Computed example of a mutant assay.
Amino acid sequence: MAQQGTAEPARSARLGRAIGTGAGAVSGAVLLLPSGHETSTRRPSPLATASVRALGRRLAHDGREAGLATHVVHYRYRGWNGAEAQLARDATWAADEIVRRYGDVPVCLVGVDMGGRAALRAAGHPAVNSVLALAPWLPEEDVAAPPEPVKQLMGRRVLIVHGTNDLRTDPELSFRLAERAKKTNREVCRFEVHSDGHGLRQHHAEVHALAVDFVMGVLFGRDFARPLEDALAAPPPLGLRMPLASGFGRGIG
């Protein structure tokens, strides 16, 4: 008699250990959402997780005294996988987990590439008050398919950052999404990193400084730097094509 195979147990999303050490009680949280693939049931790549840790360390360091908890989200699968939207579901689970661990604290979703799409999609969670999407992967617009939703962004502060030379994720698609979101939510802005590519490596110091400025403002009420304040207040397209100045965060931004 043939032996039956054993089914693989269902995978679960999980939070990585808090990056850095907090100064005491947690007053706000960042969930770092790594990149992924459009379609894949493989386990997430460790390289994708590693790619968000540098930003996580910077956020944890600068937010320590304010009570910031920073966690990487470990997805169940590598892929978005169509209508399953599995990365977004895992982001929603992670926000639930933050509430379970820390109570009623504000959450900022920080996503890179496909993680940026997950952050934008999961923004409707009640604990989420803000979204930072770095070079977000967004689907090509198709007249036969509904556009990427933006209603869940209402009432949230949203910052999108995209390199103008990104060959992996189309920066024009993130502009169009921001344009649609801005019609119902004034608290949306988008920065363009001129001449930079998908990884935003040429200006990573400025990008990290902008991320810190945004997170400390949306979670703890600190004043935004003038360029970020202006971008949020400016009407489209000005506030959606704001150039990220060289030296931002070093007294020049």
Rank of each mutant, 00 (worst) to 15 (best):
E148D: 13
R57M: 12
R121L: 14
R53Q: 14
A85E: 15
L159I: 09
D96S: 14
R222H: 13
L200V: 10
R156F: 02
Q4E: 14
P237K: 09
E172W: 10
D62V: 00
G221S: 03
A10N: 06
I252H: 09
G36V: 07
T21V: 15
L33E: 03
E8M: 09
V207D: 01
E65V: 12
F191M: 01
I252R: 13
G20Y: 05
L232T: 04
L138K: 06
A25F: 02
P34S: 13
H162T: 08
H61Q: 15
L159P: 06
E179H: 09
E140N: 13
W80H: 10
D196V: 04
A123P: 05
R101D: 00
S246N: 10
G67H: 01
V150M: 00
V105T: 12
M242Y: 12
G22Q: 11
A69V: 07
E97Y: 00
N129M: 00
R17S: 15
A123G: 14
L153V: 05
V193G: 08
D196I: 03
L210W: 04
G199L: 13
T21P: 01
R241T: 15
G28R: 08
P227H: 00
P236S: 13
V143L: 11
R101H: 02
A118G: 13
T169I: 04
A50H: 11
F224E: 06
P126T: 01
R64N: 01
T41M: 14
L244Q: 02
L132A: 07
A211I: 00
A133G: 12
W80E: 02
G111C: 10
R42G: 06
G115P: 06
P46Q: 10
V107P: 05
R180W: 12
I19R: 03
H125E: 04
R100Q: 14
A91Q: 09
P106G: 04
D213Y: 00
D142H: 11
A60V: 10
V193F: 08
G24P: 07
Y77F: 15
L210F: 05
A205F: 11
L47S: 14
H194Q: 10
H198K: 11
V150A: 12
P237G: 03
I98L: 12
V30C: 12
P243Q: 11
E187S: 12
D170E: 11
E192K: 02
P34C: 09
P149C: 05
L55E: 07
T39D: 08
T92F: 08
A91S: 14
L59R: 03
I98Q: 03
G22M: 02
D213H: 06
M114R: 10
V30G: 04
R157H: 08
S27N: 15
G5W: 04
Q86L: 14
G239W: 05
H71R: 07
A133K: 04
D104C: 01
H61C: 06
L132F: 07
M1F: 10
G163A: 02
G124Y: 03
R201D: 11
P236F: 04
